[in-house]
Structure formats: C-alpha cells, structure tokens
Amino acid sequence: MDFIEILSYGFIQRALLAGTLIAVLCSVLGVFLVLRRLSLIGDGLAHVTFGGTAIALSLKLYSASALLVSLPVVLLSSLGILKLTEKARLSGDSAIGIVSALGISAGIILASAGGGYNVDLLSYLFGNILSITSQEVGIAAVLFCVVMLLLSLFFNDLLAIAFDEELARVSGIRTATINAVLVLLTALSVVLAMKLVGIMLISSLLILPAVSALQLARSFKSCVALAALQGGCSVVAGIFLSFATNLPTSAMIVLLNLAFFGLAFLVRRCLQPKSSS
C-alpha cells in the first residue's frame, strides 16, 4: 500500500490534520515550560484530564463531549497550581504533585464507580488518534487558532519571564497575568493532546521537541521553529509508520521524538568545539 492510497482514508486525513495542529501547539508551549522549569506541569494536568474524562464517561458522554467536559476541569486545575505556588508558598513541582494526586485519585474513584476501566477510558489513557472525529478536528482547529493568537500577543512577555521573572516584574510586566496565560494555554494543549498520544504520554509531547530544539538552536525564535517542526514531523511520520507496521500510533510518535532528541544531542556534540588541553 503506497502513501497516496493511505492518504485516501478519511480517518488518516483527520489524524494528520488534528495531530499536526496539536503537536505544533504542544511543542511551542513546551519551549516556554522547559525554560521556566515547569515542564512537568503537562504530566500533572494530564492526571487531572484523566479525572475530567472519567467524569464525562460516568455521565455517558463520549468523543468530543468528553473533551469539552475535561476542558473546564483542567483549566481550573492549572490556575489552582498557580495559586498554590503563590499563596501556599510551595515550589512548582510540589503544587503540580498535589493537583496531580487529586486528579488521578478522583479519576480512579469515578472510573470504579462507573463500572471499571472500559474501552473508552483506556483509549484516552493511551491515545487513539486514528479514531478522532470530524467534530474533534474542528475543536482542535479552533483551539489551535485561539492559543496561537494568544501566544503571538503575549510572546515578548512570555519570553521575558521565561528567562528572568524578577527582571520582568521590575520592568513593569504583569508576571502574575502572564503566568496565568501560560498555564491556561498549557491546559488547553493537554486536553487536546489526550487523543493524540494519550493521558499517560502527554508530557513527552511537551518536553521532547523543546529539549531537542534547545540542543541545536542559536536563538529563541529558531528554537521555537525547530520544536514546532519536530513535533509536526513526528506526528506525520508516526501515523504513517504505525499504519504500516500495525503498532500503536501514540507510542510511535513518542519514540520518534526520542530518536530526534538523540540525533540532536549527537549533532550538538559533534559540532561543539573541543577544548584544548
């Protein structure tokens, strides 16, 4: 079966479109999160997404409805992480751990009360982008446009706090507002990505393209561009490879990102000038 024939399938077209949009979104946001040392927020919010999905499935809501139910839960949880770091004087990883534990425990209780882990819940846990619907593609496209618009509007402020939050505050940037924008955008991306790579692997899509780009980039904008390129390419290649080999798409996407990171690391080591003894 050649590539042209594969592209003739509607579910492949939907997967490629939605997957590329979501991967680019996560990769770009991941650069800011890695520089802010908040990369694990994706993992914490993914656990909250599990709780939100369990709520939706317990109410007999499926597909795009489950995504819409999870969205407000994850958005509020992202703000909860931010408030815990500000009001309770907790470090970012501690706040993420608290919210993550709450989300996963609530999800387990709701899943058990709803009759256990059914096929629908497992598809959200491990990802199943080939089953994405036209409605979910539409939601992904709208949210992609919203997030990219907000990123472009707040780009300079996000850049400033990514490198030095104290200096940004002294310079007059409303750091509390910008931090809220960052975590809310991350929450949107996490909810979108749960169908792409699954709740269990979301953090890899936020982290791996960003850290790969940081190995090679010479400027911040080139870092963002490289991360977006890797994220998009990993999804396209992952979908084709999984279709050809009959292996899980989500795991293939993550493995390709790991391979890209290893390649970027080796290239940086080769290009790095050797210190004279």
Rank of each mutant, 00 (worst) to 15 (best):
S189N: 06
I173K: 08
S171H: 12
G92D: 10
L182R: 11
A95L: 01
A193M: 14
L71F: 14
P72M: 08
S100N: 10
A141D: 04
L61K: 10
V183K: 01
V73W: 09
G138N: 08
L79C: 00
A113Q: 11
A66Q: 00
L192A: 08
V191L: 06
A141F: 13
G127I: 04
M148G: 08
N118P: 02
L71V: 00
L57P: 10
L68H: 06
I81L: 11
I132W: 05
E166Y: 05
V69R: 06
A140D: 07
V69F: 00
L182T: 03
V137L: 12
A162T: 12
G80E: 07
A106P: 15
L67R: 02
G115M: 07
D93C: 05
I139K: 11
M148K: 04
I98K: 15
S189K: 07
G116F: 14
A176D: 13
F50A: 07
L90G: 05
S100C: 03
S63D: 11
A95Y: 00
D93G: 02
A64N: 10
M148N: 03
L122S: 07
K87M: 02
C145G: 08
L159A: 09
K60A: 05
V147Q: 04
E136A: 06
G51V: 01
V99F: 13
E136T: 04
V69P: 05
A140G: 09
L121E: 03
D164N: 14
V74A: 00
L76G: 12
L82Y: 10
V190F: 00
S78L: 01
K60F: 12
G92M: 07
G127D: 09
R174C: 10
G52H: 12
L188D: 03
L188G: 10
L75D: 04
L125P: 11
I129G: 02
S77A: 13
A193Q: 12
K83A: 00
L182D: 08
S100F: 14
S171I: 02
I132P: 09
A66S: 06
G107S: 06
V74M: 03
G116D: 09
I104L: 06
S77Q: 01
A111R: 13
L59F: 09
V190Y: 00
N179V: 02
V191P: 10
Y62M: 05
S131A: 13
A193Y: 11
L68Y: 03
R89Y: 08
N128Q: 15
L59S: 07
I108T: 12
D120F: 00
R174G: 07
L79P: 02
A187E: 07
Y62C: 04
S105A: 12
F126P: 14
A140L: 05
E86C: 01
M194C: 08
N128P: 12
I108E: 05
S65C: 01
G52A: 04
S91N: 10
K87F: 08
L75M: 09
I109K: 09
L67H: 05
A160Y: 08
G97T: 02
L143I: 15
L149C: 02
S77M: 03
L67K: 03
A113S: 07
M148S: 11
F155M: 14
L102M: 14
Y124W: 11
L76S: 14
L121S: 06
S152E: 02
A111W: 11
D157T: 04
A140C: 11
V73F: 15
I109F: 15
L71W: 13
L59V: 03
I132A: 10
L182P: 12
S65Y: 14
N118T: 05
F50I: 03
V190H: 04
S112A: 12
Y62S: 13
A187M: 02
